[in-house]
Amino acid sequence: MSFDKDALSAAITKHGRVARVVVAEVQGSTPREVGAAMLVWQTPAGFDQSGTIGGGTLEFEAAKHAFSAPRLQRLPLGPAMGQCCGGAVTLLTEVFESASDIPEDIFARGPGDMPFAVKKALAEARAQGLLKPKLHGDWMVEPITRATRPLWVWGAGHVGRAIVATLAPLPDLAITWVDTAANRFPDTLPGGVTQLIAEHPEALMAYAPPEAEHLILTYSHALDLELCHRALDHGFAFAGLIGSRTKWARFRSRLRDLGHTDAQIDRICCPIGQPDLGKHPQAIAVGVAAQVISGRKITESYGERTG
């Protein structure tokens, strides 16, 4: 878990003052782990939020009082909230009007001078590149979210929209979404998604990082084939193609004709997702999201009508 500076900045731009509530410390059984956070903003009807710290009553009360709560609160979930978890949670609540002063790597803050334990944690984290959120006394230390996995989604049809909407909240994914026209995309893009519009999208494959992951699901089989061809020439960490057994058999033959070996072609995963979940775009998106998160290659087919 880490501090999502971009999400906070976007929320401030849209809503003004934003409260951030983060699980700073846990004891025993609790709904969420240290670092789980939510953003809360005021509305004419009361408040609204994004993200979750879990726990039903805990989350509702924390959001309801986010602009008046003490900075640190330790809450036994049973006695204080009537919840059956049995543990205790310490919440850190902070109100932000700007994110410009938040560092780009590690955010350490608290009252008074920085304690030695915090200085030591920062030095070790910067030397080793590894840090977990932790409360040191009254000081909270959190790594800043960095999107470290470039994911290119080719196609903004029903399945593309469902996949992007499902994956966009994941903080480690840097999603680039490609299609041929602006009207193929939804009116509002999820936060953190980069939109690319090109009459010939296949030409953009050359600009994808070689470590990028690709999901190919355009409206055109010819375009899908060309994207697979160019991905194999360009290099990638993962490439998945939506399609049926018939489609993939034809693609394999045509990719061989284009000069690719069977070993190279086998690097492309077709179909993608979990076929047993069904063919509804949202069901496909759930399966694909699970595959992207887990890194598994799934070999079963969606069936004839998907491609």
Rank of each mutant, 00 (worst) to 15 (best):
W139I: 09
M140L: 15
I144N: 12
T145A: 15
T145M: 10
R146A: 12
A147Q: 15
R149I: 15
R149Q: 13
W152E: 01
V153N: 05
W154D: 09
G160C: 04
V164K: 01
A165E: 15
A165W: 06
P169R: 13
P169I: 12
D172P: 05
A174P: 07
A174Q: 15
T176L: 12
V178E: 02
V178R: 00
D179F: 06
D179S: 15
N183T: 13
R184P: 00
R184H: 14
G192P: 09
I197F: 03
I197N: 02
E199C: 11
H200P: 01
H200W: 05
E202M: 05
A203P: 01
M205T: 13
A206V: 14
Y207V: 04
P210Q: 09
A212F: 02
H214P: 02
H214A: 01
I216R: 05
T218C: 04
A222E: 10
A222T: 05
L225G: 11
C228F: 12
H229D: 15
A231V: 09
A231D: 09
H234G: 09
H234P: 07
G235Q: 08
F236Q: 13
G240M: 09
I242Y: 07
I242P: 03
I242M: 15
G243H: 13
S244F: 08
S244P: 10
S244W: 08
K247Y: 10
A249E: 06
A249G: 00
F251V: 12
R254S: 01
L255M: 11
L255C: 10
R256I: 11
